[in-house]
Design a binder for these strands. Structure first.
Length: 591
DNA sequence: GGCACGACTTGTCGACACTTAT
DNA sequence: ATAAGTGTCGACAAGTCGTGCC
């Protein structure tokens, strides 16, 4: 694969870097679409880089004990806590306003972990969370945050400069001749774990990460990052088959966390590109695959039927694969393969439609998926069969899991897995919606509304919902008020124009008045478009699909075709992430 | 197969910065 | 100048999926 579009200032040794020469961009464009032999030429056997140097992570600032006048009270009496216990208490006190702290599980988990940090005296005394009074601590932190807001410009600037310094020192690494931005070079600070949805571990203590917890990954011939004075890294390794720079094990789930590169980096960009190329290959054979699973609905084998219905859901409804999860470790959420009988309802007939399936379950991040869809008769009959003699909490697809499913998909097409369908369907929907909705004669704001509507169709498909912003109603009213004011203004301008026309002497004014009317009309139209857009976007989040599912070349091509500035579609970060696409896609790009 | 694990992508949210209205 | 509204970005949780082991 070719990487030719990194910003020139990032280049370390331009003349040595054949693949990064902008001059080659044009000539290579023809080749890159259908093969990726370039990457294979550069790196074989999963090698991700040849040189990697970085400064290691930035640790969370150490705990600063409370001033002595800020007290914790137990059973109404002030009590001085040991620094360890005090720190954990401050975590709780900072969350007092949050609903979390009223939840039983949260309180139970917190109290259990807090007690582990107490001295034996403290442990003996503090036995009931209800008797703990954190309000003084809470007030203290509120005060601090007020003070932060009230800082002078100079103080704020100073902090900003310090952050910039840290970014320059720790926020970049060198990977194969490029200075690349790191995504998350700061180690997550300690605190109380807040899972999403009904999480059994909410409130547990997320412990502080120390140098001895950290594994550094870099190349042998690089300057290794130094641990803070008096400390040691857990390990320094040189594994160029992976892309991470730093890792540690987190104590809530025992999973590994990583420091990796920013989406603007070569390594992430190439991967992203590859993802869309896989989706485009699916486009070429999706008809065959669809025919295949429709055929499989009739199979004699139960597992084949289940597999075929599951793929149908994944394809038609853009469901996620649905790996099984360890019970009690995470919130109870499901995807396609882990659907249970209780998550669907079958209606032979519903609101004038035949064979309707009603889905109602919690998906990723405990976001509700609710949908009523008519399906083919065969699917319906199969579902009835799958549900026979089962309890509500039994698996719908008892002969299927993601591993089996993906193995099958892999056989149908190289690189095919469940999530490729999501990418494919999202991107193809955008492309098709853009074709359908864009009106040549409309102005730029109207075209952008069309773009957002196309984007919205995808977000709905992928179930990317959001809670309506707290200020939604208000901001809608404000916008409406603006529109009303603009309407009045327009009426006035029109009257002026009429008066000027009627008055023979006003000939000279006529032109400018006409212009004024036109300008106001345009402004009004812009506001109205904005209102429509916002209203339609009330419960829908566009960001996730834009960032993860929509081949950016479709958007870039659309912008080029209609003369829309790319900035109207992608903000700065997005443009950085999609630099590869902005550089390569022409107006005739077809997904 | 089934399972644990590691690496990587996807997802939501809230803090903060920036902009505009008052 | 301040408040309010809006957009951006980072934090970090929660998915997917391939691998290697038994």
């Amino acid at each position: 694969m070719v990487w030719f579009c990194s910003p020139p200032h990032m280049k370390i040794e331009p003349e040595e870097d054949f693949y990064h020469s902008p001059k080659l961009a044009k000539s290579l464009k023809r080749e890159r679409d259908d093969d990726n032999e370039w990457e294979e030429e550069r790196y074989t056997d999963g090698v991700k880089w040849k040189f990697l140097e970085h400064k290691g992570p930035v640790f969370a600032p150490p705990y600063e004990p409370l001033p002595s006048n800020v007290k914790f009270y137990y059973d109404g009496k002030p009590m001085k806590l040991s620094p360890e216990a005090e720190e954990v208490a401050t975590f709780f006190s900072k969350m007092l306003d949050h609903e979390y702290t009223t939840k039983d599980i949260f309180r139970k988990n917190f109290f259990k972990d807090w007690r582990k940090e107490m001295t034996s005296e403290e442990k003996a005394k503090i036995t009931d969370l209800k008797k703990c009074n954190f309000t003084e601590m809470s007030e203290y932190f509120k005060g601090l945050s007020e003070a932060r807001k009230a800082m002078t410009k100079e103080q704020k600037l100073k902090i900003k400069e310090e952050n910039e310094r840290l970014l320059q020192e720790y926020g970049f690494c060198i990977m194969d001749n490029h200075r690349e931005r790191i995504a998350n070079f700061r180690i997550e600070p300690p605190g109380l774990f807040r899972g999403r949805g009904d999480h059994p571990k909410m409130g547990m203590l997320k412990r502080r990460i120390r140098p001895q917890d950290i594994i550094i990954n870099c190349s042998k011939n690089s300057k290794h990052p130094e641990p803070p004075p008096g400390t040691k890294w857990k390990e320094v390794r040189h594994d160029n088959k992976v892309t991470w720079l730093v890792s540690w094990t987190e104590n809530i789930q025992g999973s590994i966390k990583y420091i990796m590169l920013n989406p603007s980096s070569r390594i992430k960009g190439e991967k992203d590109w590859q993802k869309y190329e896989t989706a485009r290959r699916l486009k070429k054979c999706v008809d065959r695959i669809r025919a295949q699973y429709r055929e499989d609905w009739k199979s004699k084998e139960m597992r084949v039927r289940q597999r075929a219905v599951a793929i149908y859901f994944i394809d038609k409804l853009a469901l996620r694969a649905g790996n099984e999860k360890e019970e009690g470790e995470t919130a109870d959420t499901v995807g396609c393969c882990s659907l249970r009988v209780e998550h669907i309802k079958l209606y032979p007939e519903n609101e004038g439609q035949e064979y309707v399936v009603e889905f109602d379950f919690l998906g990723k991040d405990s976001i509700r998926y609710y949908n009523k869809v008519p399906v083919e008769k065969r699917v319906f009959k199969n579902l009835q069969l799958f549900m026979e003699n089962k309890e509500p909490d039994d698996d719908l697809f008892d002969r299927l899991n993601t591993s089996v499913l993906n193995k099958h998909l892999q056989e149908l097409m190289d690189g095919l897995s469940a999530k490729v369908f999501r990418t494919y369907n999202a991107s193809i929907t955008l492309q098709q919606q853009l074709k359908e909705l864009t009106n040549e004669d409309e102005n730029i704001p109207a075209k952008i509304l069309s773009y957002n509507r196309a984007n919205r169709a995808v977000a709905i498909l992928c179930n990317h919902q959001r809670a309506p912003p707290k200020t939604f109603e208000k901001s809608m009213q404000n916008l409406q008020a603006k529109i009303d004011a603009k309407r009045d203004q327009l009426a006035n301008a029109k009257r002026d124009l009429k008066a000027a026309k009627a008055d023979a002497k006003g000939l000279r004014d006529d032109k400018s008045k006409k212009k004024a009317v036109q300008r106001i009309e345009e402004q009004l139209m812009k506001l109205e478009v904005q209102a429509t857009d916002r209203e339609e976007n009330k419960q829908i989040a566009l960001g996730t699909s834009k960032l993860n599912y929509l081949d950016p070349r479709i958007s870039v091509a659309w912008c080029k075709k209609w003369g829309i500035p790319i900035e109207k579609i992608y903000n700065k970060t997005q443009r950085e992430k999609f630099a590869w696409a902005i550089d390569m896609a022409e107006k005739d790009f077809e997904f």
